[in-house]
């Protein structure tokens, strides 16, 4: 009887969270789907009409879409490569005995705590600006032409800025995982004559696999939706060179007021995220089971 009572109470306690998240998932998403089949522009109110798949065919055949798709994937893959490999290397380094480890940890973590608009604007103006930026000064000091990073390599510059923000995240998580590694195991292997490299490959790396999986999974979720960094640095340009899907949909919705087209783009973004999540979870799901 007591259990029945508690079970009912438990249901009641979970209800607000579950219902709110359910509503959050279903209501706006169904509206997006509905809008995506309408010809609907905020500048022409009252002209809404059924449009079938027109919005989708326009969005999917727009050259900007292919550029944005490529850019989205380039940002995800580029930042993941830098942060995962860099994070492993940094975590291994920080796990060594040294003086002032606590302070170094704090210095390394800091970029992750910076709000994206600040991070992007600081890099854009004070470092990458071709006239007054610090990089331009360094280039001139060694006799080189200053390079206009955000005009000439906008996508790469954004990848660098985003990677700077996420490298601390990967490092912090991998370092935490490293510190739970059983030292005896490594010592035993060392006594058996295993080299540092084979100790890393056969003991450390397998131990880290779960943490690496988590880093990839979580970063991918966030990196598919990079937005603020693009908005304040390049506005997606020059042209659409640094536009990702999130930014493309934003521009369609809030700059061109094309509700129908933006909704179709939003649904494409959702489908893309699902495809990525599907493959990701299949590829690395085994690691998360344990």
């Amino acid at each position: 009887m007591a259990t029945l009572h508690t079970r009912a109470a438990a249901r009641l306690m979970m209800a607000p969270s579950v219902l709110l998240l359910l509503a959050w998932m279903i209501i706006p998403l169904s509206l997006t789907i509905y809008f995506s089949f309408l010809r609907y522009n905020l500048l022409m109110p009252g002209m809404e009409e059924w449009a079938g798949f027109t919005n989708y065919s326009f969005f999917l055949t727009d050259p900007a879409f292919f550029q944005a798709l490529f850019n989205t994937l380039a940002i995800v893959v580029g930042v993941l490569c830098i942060t995962v490999f860099g994070g492993i290397a940094l975590a291994l380094l920080l796990d060594q005995p040294m003086y002032g480890q606590g302070i170094v940890r704090i210095l390394v973590i800091a970029p992750f705590l910076i709000m994206p608009t600040v991070a992007a604007l600081v890099w854009k103006n004070m470092f990458m600006n071709p006239v007054n930026g610090l990089f331009a000064w360094v280039a001139k000091a060694v006799g080189l032409q200053p390079y206009d990073f955000l005009s000439n390599s906008p996508l790469l510059s954004i990848i660098v800025i985003v990677a700077w923000q996420w490298l601390p995240f990967a490092t912090l998580i991998l370092l935490t995982a490293l510190q739970s590694l059983d030292e005896d195991q490594k010592e035993a292997a060392q006594m058996d004559g295993a080299s540092a490299w084979s100790r890393f490959i056969y003991i450390t790396l397998p131990h880290l696999s779960r943490a690496i999986t988590v880093v990839i999974l979580i970063q991918t979720i966030f990196l598919l939706s990079v937005f603020a960094e693009i908005l304040v640095t390049t506005n997606g340009g020059p042209g659409t060179q640094s536009t990702n899907i999130t930014y493309l949909v934003y521009a369609q919705a809030l700059l061109q007021f094309d509700v129908g087209g933006a909704s179709a783009g939003g649904i494409v973004a959702v489908i893309l995220a699902n495809i990525v999540a599907f493959f990701l979870i299949r590829m690395i799901g085994k690691n998360l089971e344990a």
Binding site: L31, V249, A262, G266, V270, A273, N274
Partner: peptide, 24 residues
């Protein structure tokens, strides 16, 4: 399952619901 489902709601890209949220 409930926990995993909650986690999966984080995978919904915000831009997928930007338009209706803005209009609402």
């Amino acid at each position: 399952d409930v926990l995993m489902w909650m986690l999966s709601t984080k995978m919904l890209p915000p831009v997928g619901v930007l338009v209706p949220m803005y209009l609402i």
